[in-house]
Simulated scan of single mutants.
Amino acid sequence: MNTNSDVLIRKMNEDDYEIMAKWLSTEAVLEFYGDVNSPFDLEKVKEKYEPRIAGEVPVTPYIVELGETPIGYIQKYSLSEEKKVEFGYSSHDQVYGIDQFIGVQNLFNKGIGTKMVRQFIDYFFGNKGANIVILDPEVSNIRAIKCYEKCGFSKVRLIEEGNNWLMECCV
């Protein structure tokens, strides 16, 4: 999936475990993607991401590259019927959820997150029949919220006891 010459999004594979362990053990990533008190080692990465790579769970993992260098992670999943009801969507809506992070701190605030999210959602609207893509950043994650708004997402309502925004982007 490459529509931008410098940002490439490819499916994650077993060769990516070490870089994921590196990213998921940094405070800059874990502050909003995980738990700063629970960094990932290689075994924890394998335990979580191996079933995703194998297609055993309904979450598809991707690695984001800048040039040929891995710099981030993005994943997608179809919203369950139960979640559709909870969030007020119709059973006819094709809703995808996404989660992502840039793993290289010196690449924060350079527009790369906007490029990768825009490229990813354009793919789902154009090729997967999606009519809604959602995400749920923590309220305190101002940098991510600004990125998502640049990509066309709007705040819908607070969820998770007011700790996260449900944000959506519609065709």
Rank of each mutant, 00 (worst) to 15 (best):
I102V: 14
L107Q: 05
L79C: 14
V104K: 07
A130F: 09
T114V: 09
V104E: 14
I121P: 01
R118L: 08
G72V: 07
K128R: 10
K76Q: 10
Q94A: 07
Q75K: 09
G97E: 13
T114I: 00
D122Y: 02
G88E: 04
V104P: 00
K128S: 12
F124M: 12
N109L: 05
K115E: 12
S78G: 09
K83S: 15
F108H: 12
F125C: 03
Y77H: 11
F124K: 03
Y77F: 11
F101M: 04
F120M: 06
G126D: 09
G72M: 11
G88V: 05
E81G: 12
Q119M: 10
F124P: 02
F120I: 03
T114C: 00
F108A: 05
S90R: 06
D99Q: 04
F120H: 07
E81L: 15
K76D: 15
Q105L: 02
N109I: 01
D93C: 09
K115D: 08
F120E: 07
S91E: 14
Q75H: 08
P70A: 14
G88L: 05
F87S: 07
Y89G: 08
D99Y: 06
Y123N: 10
D99T: 07
S80G: 11
V95K: 07
K115R: 13
G72D: 09
E86D: 13
S80E: 11
V95L: 03
T114K: 11
G97P: 03
V117Y: 09
Y89V: 08
V95D: 05
Q119N: 06
S91P: 00
